[in-house]
């Protein structure tokens, strides 16, 4: 996963102002890509992504199939674009669910402290003990392979990091005088959490989430590649990579396309994360 951050090493040599513009550009590109791909797949889809045509398999590029067809005669471009919504969609689903579980957990633990905190955090520690890949493999073994179980596995592992992040932020913020004062203004605990504490968390969480997005995309793709994630004929990038493996000698571009897609989306997601981190840098903001 280290390679996912390769762009940082490259960016380090770039002047700060340009780096910001680059990151902002990448963030914009990322958004465009997601929107563009979904518009394309739903509005101007020419081919059925799962329709097999054994007579037209492994065709080269043509006007009808701009990137050719795969070993079952399916249009590669269509599958690639649909794959973006698949991979991204499931990644976002996993991320969103992890957030929905992690944030309230962390808020409550950090604000209430005491036994609530201790209980919550022991549970979280338990989950933290397992690496994500292992949990995914075990779950697939128990419940069967499939993208749903993969998402479940990711949620099980990822929510903990959000709960911990939120908790630590809330622990330090709720010590501050303005929270004490909010209490003297008669604000209920729920109100204090939503009005005074949640906005502090939002920045941190957004940054962590966008950095995580790259990792999750990579995880879904790699687990689909070894057959634990998306099942055929779903057009998922990792699975497509796996499908094209036997034709590596004759049609290497069939592996290059999904590979490039994964690399570029992960890279863009990471740059988006870096951009958000710089934007929401709390320390910078607090300086008078």
């Amino acid at each position: 996963m280290k390679t996912a951050y390769a762009h940082r090493r490259i960016l380090r040599s770039v002047p700060a102002s340009m780096k910001h513009r680059l990151q902002a550009g990448a963030a914009a590109l990322f958004a465009l890509l997601v929107i563009g791909a979904s518009i394309y797949t739903f509005m101007i889809l020419k081919h059925d992504p799962t329709l097999t045509d054994l007579r037209g398999r492994l065709l080269g590029a043509s006007t009808l199939h701009p990137l050719g067809t795969d070993h079952l005669g399916r249009d590669v471009l269509t599958r690639l674009l649909l794959g973006s919504t698949q991979t991204l969609g499931y990644s976002l689903l996993a991320l969103g669910t992890a957030l929905v579980i992690g944030i309230p957990f962390g808020l409550l633990a950090g604000y209430r402290r005491g036994w609530v905190d201790r209980l919550f955090m022991r549970i979280a520690d338990g989950f933290l003990a397992f690496p994500d890949t292992i949990v995914a493999i075990v779950l697939s073994g128990l419940l069967g392979a499939g993208i749903g179980n993969l998402v479940l596995a990711i949620v099980l592992v990822k929510w903990v990091s959000y709960a911990r992040l939120v908790r630590s932020t809330v622990l330090s913020e709720s010590q501050k005088d303005y929270v004490a004062i909010a209490r003297t203004h008669g604000l209920s605990d729920a109100r204090i959490m939503s009005r005074h504490l949640l906005p502090h968390i939002a920045g941190h969480v957004l940054v962590l989430a966008s950095l995580d997005l790259g990792k999750i995309i990579l995880l879904i793709s790699s687990l689909s590649y070894i057959g634990l994630g998306a099942q055929p004929p779903t057009p998922e990038w990792g699975a497509m990579l796996n499908d094209s493996r036997p034709y590596f000698q004759s049609r290497p571009e069939l592996m290059v396309y999904p590979g490039l897609a994964i690399v570029s989306v992960v890279l863009l997601a990471n740059m988006l994360g870096d951009y958000l981190r710089d934007r929401f840098d709390v320390k910078k903001e607090a300086q008078p």
Binding site: I181, H196, H200
Partner: peptide, 25 residues
């Protein structure tokens, strides 16, 4: 309190901080 920097939520505008007590009490 002693330290007004800590007594004001850094993410709320001054007007919102001023309104806080009124909204509840």
């Amino acid at each position: 309190f002693q330290n007004p920097a800590a007594a004001l939520n850094p993410r709320l505008r001054i007007e919102d901080s001023l309104l806080d007590p009124y909204l509840q009490l």
